[in-house]
């Protein structure tokens, strides 16, 4: 599974960072999300799915490869 971020949509709310801190971070310059680990291990899928669900900008997806 691969994590996709549609960067222009991101409003830098940081909700993904709260939910899955090993997978997401925020850029120092403007708070926009950064995907730290585009291929997270299976045990983090729940956290990533939660981040996808709460992202207020609908900017995140977890896609099957």
């Amino acid at each position: 599974m691969r994590v996709e971020l549609d960067e222009p949509k991101c409003v830098a709310s940081g909700q993904c960072v709260v939910e899955a801190p090993d997978v997401f971070d925020q850029r120092d310059e403007d708070g926009v999300a950064v995907v730290l680990d585009p291929h997270p291990p299976e045990e983090l899928y729940d956290q990533v799915n939660e981040a996808v669900a709460i992202c207020p900008a609908a900017a995140l997806r977890l896609v099957r490869e």
């Binding site: 940081g14 960072v17 925020q26 708070g31």
Partner: peptide, 19 residues
């Protein structure tokens, strides 16, 4: 609305990042 909103919000949201 976006894209103007996105530009403006990125100017003010740094202090509100999780870190």
């Amino acid at each position: 609305d976006a894209p103007e909103h996105t530009r403006l919000r990125r100017l003010v949201n740094l202090p509100f990042t999780v870190k």
